[in-house]
Amino acid sequence: MTDSAPIISTHDLAIGFQAIRSRHTPKTVASGIDVSLSGGEIVCLLGPNGSGKSTLIRTLTGLHAPLSGKISLYQKPLAEYNARQVARKISTVLTDRVTIGNLTVYELVSFGRSPYTGWFGSLESRDREIVEWAIESTGIEEFVDRDILRLSDGERQKVMIARALAQDTSAIMLDEPTAHLDLPNRVEIMQLLRSLAHETQKSILLSTHELDLALKAADTLWLIGREGNLVTGTPEDLVLDGTFESVFRQDSFDFDRSTGSFRLHHPSRQKVYLQGDQVGVFWTRRALEREGYRVVDSPDSSLQIEISGTDEHFRWKVSNGDSGTETHSSIAALLAHLRNLRS
């Protein structure tokens, strides 16, 4: 992280919705928010559904009024900027789907120059250079002439990011940029954002549901908890000190620190001991946990599985106390055998 002054910082910020009529009370979604964004870092905003991720992003971009507290943009209150000035500092990619057609990718990206162009929106050569740079940086050159209606979801998201880049701001805020995308596209978008943050020294804030990806890609995590508090830190620190676990704990599953993934709860859990090849153990463990077994570290359980072999040819030797041992050549066969044992 850079030690220069932050681009955006908040102090005791409360977000939510103003009272519509006098008899209503304002609805606070999250409060006591003290965060800051610096150049060159990518921040992932995580939190359960309805915890206020979108509201926070829209509040920080000035699209939504804060309930109380301070937001500073370059050490000056955000409220003192007009819309055009804010648009030169912060750009955003929203969840609103763009449904129109008859517009080429180039035209859409060039709309990002709005805060700089004159009343008619004509592009100067400098604007054109930035638009072309944005197109190059997001790797969408091959379809600049295509109608935006004929883009796949992943392509469209890149185009929207290019439009935000063309706005030439020091911060980009994205609300769920990976929603509706398949896995390769999700990873690609995250990689793109990460390299943009590091290469352009922009500050990138994105909200997401993808805990896995966020843990891997973010320099900093912002976690909104159930009580509307916001915790920040380096992903690994938040995992190790249990914050991550406490935010995402639910009745039916919890976060497993040792694997960095979620584990479903099961009412009755038989213990099982695994030993053998490391890769084999990893995947067998996942399958067994899904089936409701608890993998233990000591061999005092009656059910033991030994995994042998390498090079894609694994064997599973199951020993179950009295009923002797049996060997299987696939996890499917192993699971079928275990289901038989139980019934």
């Binding site: 971009t61 819309a83 804010v86 030169r88 709309f111 162009t117 008619f120 929106g121």
Partner: peptide, 18 residues
């Protein structure tokens, strides 16, 4: 025309573009 172009993307986007 510039505002109308911005509105094509929706009001929120138009505002975010100043």
């Amino acid at each position: 025309s510039k505002s109308l172009n911005g509105l094509l993307l929706g009001e929120q986007y138009a505002r975010s573009m100043g």
